[in-house]
Simulated scan of single mutants.
Amino acid sequence: MTIMDDSAPWTTTPITEDLLRGALELERTEHGVLPHRLPARARAQCADGQLAVVEAQPSGVRLVFRTAATAIELDVLPTKTVYRGAQALPGDAYDLVVDGRLVDRATADGGNVLTIDMATGTRTTDSGPVATVRFTGLAAEPKDVAIWLPYREVTELVALRTDAPVEPVAPHGRRVWLHHGSSISHGSNAESSSTTWPALAAAAGGVELVNLGLGGSALLDPFTARALRDTPADLISVKLGINVVNADLMRLRAFGPAVHGFLDTIREGHPDTPLLVVSPILCPIHEDTPGPGAPVFDDGVVRFRATGDPAERAAGKLTLTVIRDELARITAQRAADDPNLHHLDGRELYGEEDFAELPLPDALHPDAATHQRIAERFTERVFGPGGPFAAP
């Protein structure tokens, strides 16, 4: 990419809600605006540092506008997350999508760095400067532009500059799909925000995505259920289970009522909206072994293992097998009075045969190719003919 000619006329456009999709709230900051995927009320009800980071990582959040610009500059202040002793992970790309097609990808140099020691839980932040992301060489004709923000970097938006005026774009009447899940829905090891499995499935299904995938934080929190309840949507899905197991958060006695309460809260705001409950994809380390999960480091490569004892299932400790059975039971029970409630076994998206071909690189998260496969399966089973989200 080339740097813009400084003599060219500039148009600076304020970054406001009508240019952003996929965020539930914008916070005004010293530098600009910070997109959040949980509202302030929810954030105030949980002091967990993990949640604070992941809800501000803008997975699925994108700037959308119409312009004839040939060049675009976006000033940002990213906060990059690195794990001490581990190799760098993907998820730092800004994807430029023009008229629905990915045409360029860039990263932001500079910004803050949050260093997490997974062995001790300690966190340190080093401050850095505002960075500029540039896209040039675009056709000088009106076009719909979307800039998908990195799913792994907290991103303060400072300024948007173009060499032609910008105007907001209406969603063209497309249905809004509101999705909640764990790090796999957040993005895990996908190449970028526009290529996570929810983003790929949304594009294939012709819907507008609001991605509330929260890495490590799909824990049936009541404040998350209220955020889902209060967010306008035409379609809703919740992918539940893996974080409850690898956090060793609750026992079977608590899990069932928590799921009922989570769904009850969503239904308060969306009584008739198609609602899909998705159980976990295959994850061999936790199929029959409870959590907690723990990282293991080997020459900078992180892998995960389950540290629980399978014998503890008798005392109510949760495994993925137990959770899948419970989610199937709960949704079948509720569906008798809720015809718009649906269930999908996550192993239909990624099961034993898939694991043999495309194993989970760190034993917990899928890679980019597996995101593509999960998206294709979800599109076929959920958005396809006869699926719960099929177009009317």
Rank of each mutant, 00 (worst) to 15 (best):
E73H: 00
T67H: 06
A71D: 14
V76T: 09
G60N: 08
P78C: 12
A86H: 03
P90E: 10
L63H: 09
E73S: 14
K80C: 04
K80L: 10
D92T: 10
A56W: 02
A71V: 09
V61K: 09
A71N: 10
P90C: 06
S59P: 02
G91D: 08
R62W: 06
T81E: 14
D92W: 00
L89A: 12
A88Y: 00
T81A: 14
S59V: 06
V61L: 08
A69T: 02
R66A: 15
A69V: 00
T70F: 02
D95R: 07
R66H: 07
D75M: 07
V54N: 12
R84C: 00
L74A: 10
Q57S: 15
T79H: 01
Y94W: 09
P58I: 11
A86T: 00
A93W: 01
P78A: 07
P90S: 07
F65Y: 13
A71F: 03
A93H: 10
S59T: 15
T67Y: 07
R84Q: 12
A56V: 06
V64D: 01
A88E: 13
V53R: 15
Y94M: 05
A86G: 02
V64C: 14
G91P: 02
A68R: 14
K80W: 07
E55R: 11
I72W: 08
A68Y: 01
P78E: 08
E55D: 15
A56Y: 04
L63M: 11
E73I: 00
V64E: 12
F65E: 12
L77I: 03
F65G: 12
G85F: 04
V54H: 13
V54D: 11
Q87I: 01
E73T: 12
V53I: 13
Y83H: 12
D75E: 14
P78V: 14
Y94D: 02
G85L: 06
A56L: 15
T81I: 14
A68H: 08
T70Y: 03
P78M: 07
L63I: 11
L77V: 02
D92N: 12
V82T: 13
D92K: 05
T67G: 10
V76N: 04
A69Y: 00
T79N: 02
E73L: 11
